[in-house]
Design a protein around this nucleic acid. Structure first.
Lengths: 131, 131
DNA sequence: CTGTTTCCTATTAATAAGGTAGGTAAAGCA
DNA sequence: TGCTTTACCTACCTTATTAATAGGAAACAG
């Protein structure tokens, strides 16, 4: 299940893509348009900044803006940044995960196949495909 | 992310499929083979009984067994029973979910498409496909 | 130097995840 | 009848996550 963090981040990205004039868009405006608590969005956009999706500027005339052209973003990278992983099971999400049953696990091949399906779906989907 | 409930239930089903002799399989044996806490499995198999996947019998010679032939079970129904839903977002998981933005939501079509992808993947996968 | 806006730290309430503990009821067997 | 095996039932517990809220400090423009 994708949490609000991932879903809100996607909506922020879409909002920025639609207001992609080159100048900064204040979070206040985004929060109002999207009807999401500005305070909560602060946490989310901060992660988006440190994750390299967007950039922010303080002070008057400040706000947030995209770092790349909208078509250069995939839904997958946005969701994966916010959710931590898109993997369906812990043993695939964390590459250091230890599991004694790994060699003989009858369910692992299915989880791997599904993981690939999910990954491909979201990484082939561009931000602009949603507009 | 699929929780241990769903993953363990799947492994119990596979264990029962492999020991599908017609007689009941004690949970103790399943727990030992699968190296899962019997106490925790009790909770899980109880839900599987009430959910109509398996049946249980008390007393000596008791245990659990499948209600159908192994090839008649889909991975999807097992996971959906344990997880509650396979939907990626709340607005699709709960059909009574109210959302003002539904008509204009730019992300909803993607979630719907993804939901179908996930649903189809797991419901086309039979229990016997994993053996 | 004032208003705007991001950036930072802390706190919180509710829920779910992943169990553990201890007992009751049912069934077969001697 | 009583013992053993097994499911079934109720309650509790710990930790982490989710989805926020609160209050202020720092940066920047005019």
């Amino acid at each position: 299940m994708i949490s609000t963090k991932g879903r809100y981040a996607l909506r922020v990205m879409l909002d920025l893509a639609k207001n992609n004039t080159g100048s900064y868009v204040p979070l206040k405006d985004i929060a109002e348009r999207q009807a999401i608590s500005k305070k909560y969005l602060e946490i989310i956009v901060k992660e988006m900044v440190t994750g390299g999706l967007i950039t922010g500027a303080s002070g008057k005339g400040g706000g947030y803006k995209l770092l790349r052209k909208p078509e250069k973003y995939t839904v997958g990278e946005i969701l994966e940044l916010m959710e931590g992983t898109l993997s369906p099971v812990a043993c695939l999400a964390d590459k250091d995960y230890r599991c004694d049953r790994r060699k003989s696990c009858e369910t692992l091949p299915m989880w791997k196949e599904f993981d690939t399906l999910v990954h491909d779906y979201f990484y082939e989907k561009k931000l602009t495909d949603l507009l």
